[in-house]
Amino acid sequence: MNWLLSGDLPRSRILAFLLIGILACLVLAPFVFPGTRSLNVAAKVAVFILLVASYDLLLGYTGIVSFAHTMFFGIGGYGIGIAAARLGPTWSSLALGIFLSLLASLALAFAIGLLSLRVRAIFFAMITLAVASFFQILASQLSELTGGEDGLNIRLPALLQRSRLATYYAVVLVSFVLFLLLLRIVNSPFGRVLLSIRENEFRAEALGYRTVVYRTLANCLGALMATAAGALYALWLRYTGPDATLSFSIMIDLLLMVVIGGMGTMYGAAVGATLFVVAQNYLQDLMKLASDSASGVPLLPNLLHPDRWLLWLGVLFIVCVYYFPSGIVGRLRR
């Protein structure tokens, strides 16, 4: 177990239970929570754990603020979508789509990193914002290739097309393995250099670490993982489109998940993504229950109306940041 977790044990009993609970729910979801909706939520949780973890590699471990992460997520989705649409629903077209999208992400992340990681953090953030906006426009304009605003419906190879269960477990398994790989990376000597760059870039340089190289590598690794997450999400949804992968609201959600879970802890990504996705999907139901049960009380039913779920999510976020500035995992590990 120590080897599997790269020596980075939860160091808190509650956190250990939480993580085991999340894993158990993901593995048993098709049997314990039957139904399309719950399976959708579980698959989204699995994909977003990987996506948030890959973003935390940049934000939490290296101190890089990038707004291009959903772009890489989108490249993964479109890679699968375009390959399946053009070459047919075969395993080889899926593999080619994934390979080419990984290659495209690697090239883009390398170029963005090398050209702009030398500049100050705020400029880097602005450059990634500009590139991501450009990509979003490109995806909607090249409608012949990408399906434009409508996106692309994806037909999968027979096995995955027939069995949702097989697709679900493939998504969970690949997400889990890649999450463990990220955990290994952040606990490697390379990961410690990233931490040192976050802490004091000037000092890291003086020790002999060429920080621009490390930051570019981290950018590439984060991009590759986000692309893999995008491909998995497209596989699960059998669809890819601007709103499903490229939207800036996903970028904001990612930021919130990293902060809520705890920056600079891979387990924070798991906890933050799970909490956020579950709240996003079930808070409305919970509020409907609360609103109905408070029907006799003045004002309260209105406040708890399911339409106000975003307001309450915002309140939850503020409370989280106020009481757990180092995130839930940071607090639990203290």
Binding site: G7, R184, I185, P189, F190, R192
Partner: peptide
């Protein structure tokens, strides 16, 4: 310890090792 270990690691030129854990060294 980590402050000094990072310097030792730089001297050993092991910063780009990705798949071993830092604790294993």
């Amino acid at each position: 310890l980590e402050n000094v270990r990072l310097a030792v690691q730089a001297r050993a030129d092991m910063g780009k090792s990705l798949l071993s854990t830092w604790r294993s060294h």
